[in-house]
């Protein structure tokens, strides 16, 4: 199991304006894995993936995607390298139809045939989007919006996709469905990084997990081991530690 490392972050410091949020993060993602990035509110999870996707500029440190340094690139260039972020808060283009939204996801692909292929792929993945393809995106439900965001992310043939809290504000049943879909995405050959507040679910889904606290990596390890880690159980999973 020595898969290729595709994303390597070293001593990343980042934040908004003058406020530093990340105080030196080291992180590694191997090909084909699902990585979970966990932690409470305001610990810097979103800051981290915004720094990776270029939406905010890191103060210092390096982010290497395959062999390219991407910490200085603007977001549209990073997307072209195959690294896509599915933004938090279900940000779609509200006044455009579902299909137009998806096609915009493939903005960087010039080949029209390839765009249609990807569109069929996404429709196979999320049949509900095909049903609603001529509706305005503003009319979709929360779960459908999340599917649209994920579908739009898949349209540009990424090799690495990051989800920023895909379960936020959704009913538990739909959360389960979204997570199943993320699992399927990973099975189709993509590498996934997922931010979650729903720690239990995320640990069940992921291969490897990082827990952020105060802008540094607090804990890391295989997801299956972290589920049974006392510190994780106490802080994030609730319940007490059984005395042995």
């Amino acid at each position: 199991m020595s898969a290729e490392t595709i994303l390597k972050i070293k001593d990343l410091k980042s934040g908004y304006g003058k406020v530093q949020i990340l105080n030196g993060i080291d992180l590694e993602v191997k090909k084909g894995q699902i990585i979970a990035l966990l932690g409470g509110n305001g610990t810097g999870k979103s800051t981290l993936i915004k720094s990776i996707s270029g939406l905010i500029k890191p103060f210092e440190g390096s982010i290497k995607f395959y062999d390219n340094e991407i910490s200085n690139l603007r977001p549209h260039k990073i997307v072209r390298q195959g690294l896509v972020q599915v933004t938090q808060g279900k940000e779609v283009f509200p006044d455009l139809s579902v299909e137009q939204n998806l096609k915009l996801g493939a903005f960087i692909i010039e080949d029209k045939k390839k765009v249609l292929e990807n569109l069929q792929f996404v429709y196979k993945f999320f049949p509900i989007l095909k049903e609603k393809r001529n509706q305005n995106a503003a009319l979709l439900s929360g779960g459908q919006l999340q599917m649209l965001c994920i579908g739009r992310g898949l349209m540009s043939n990424p090799s690495f996709i990051m989800f920023d809290e895909p379960s936020a504000g959704l009913a538990p049943q739909i959360v389960l469905e979204i997570f199943k879909n993320i699992n399927r995405i990973c099975k189709s050959g993509l590498t996934v990084l997922i931010i979650e507040q729903n720690v239990r679910m995320a640990l069940l889904l992921a291969d490897y997990a990082y827990i952020i606290r105060d802008g540094i990596i607090h804990l890391q390890g295989k997801a299956s081991e972290l589920v049974n880690d006392d510190r994780v159980r106490l802080s994030y999973l609730g319940g007490t530690v059984a005395k042995v």
Partner: peptide, 10 residues
Amino acid sequence: EDQLSSSAVG
């Protein structure tokens, strides 16, 4: 429609 999403799709 949305500047953030626009840059996120490249």
